[in-house]
Amino acid sequence: MDVAAALDRLAPRLSPTATEAVNARRLSGGASLETWAFDLDDGTPLILRRRPDGAAMRETALSLASEAALIRAAEQAGAPTPRVVRVCAPRDGLGEAYVMRRLEGETLGRRIVRDQAFAGVRPGLARRCGEVLARIHAVPTAGLPDLATSDARGELARYEEIYHQLGAQRPILEAAFRWLESIAPPPPERPVLVHGDFRNGNLMIHPTGGLVGVLDWELAHLGDPAEDLGWICVNSWRFGEWRKPVGGFGDYADLLAGHGGEISLDRVRFWQALGSLKWGVMCLMMYSSFATGQDRSIERAMIGRRTSEAEIDLVALMEAPMGMLS
């Protein structure tokens, strides 16, 4: 498939003043989805998301048309998102794909939490994340594409099943499953739209504009709003700035206040701990593709050794469980 040539042919349908696409280049990224950056000759900066030819969809992942519909719904609700320009049709010759505006900013957590360029926006970022999540969580669910619904107990059971299938003997993960099961909150009365992967890496941060785009809606589902608030507090995405629980740049109080103040810290900390547990299981899962020979890269081997990062975070959380949900 010649993606650049297909984008060239598509250019006039992406902007009335464009005749061709230029500078098409594939960005590094996932194996399940390709991301391409390109420009139109009228200067419009764009991104193409497409499923590679023959790639199987992950069982839990959304179709790209659904992803695009969610981005549009979130934009309507006032959340910052890249504007979707076109959901591709078969005649576009790009397979399952959509095109969106390319935003200016940084997604690399290491830079966002440390670089001087972001020092001005960091103090307000945790509150802003809370505000943006509140808008996402307020999206009317009636008009959305079909989404899976999950809750705390269901997620625990799902990840414990995966963990058992992997055949690892990790007492910290075993203890964390039992502990979290004993304090799991009931499902929310009204499940909301949950982004599902709201963390450094998927947030476009501009040096003066702050959070300008929430990216990667592939794991969106219906569930507990505290799930998104807890996920961005997982230590693995603080990039060394562990004293700042919200993404390595802010405090719990600002995140909670930005969201509206109706969600308790204990509920967020539960989902943060479940987030660390899920991350630990994901590291084992990614390692297993090395073990089975599916992907023998050094990267897949080494990611297994990041399980211990989730484990040390879980021990810290188990040592200081506070009045969790009691």
Binding site: N235, R238, R305, S308, D313, A316
Partner: peptide
């Protein structure tokens, strides 16, 4: 595995941030 990981300092500090 990862001696510079922030979680080590956090655990020793007793707060996990």
């Amino acid at each position: 595995d990862q001696p510079s990981y922030g979680g080590l300092a956090a655990l020793r500090d007793g707060g996990n941030g």
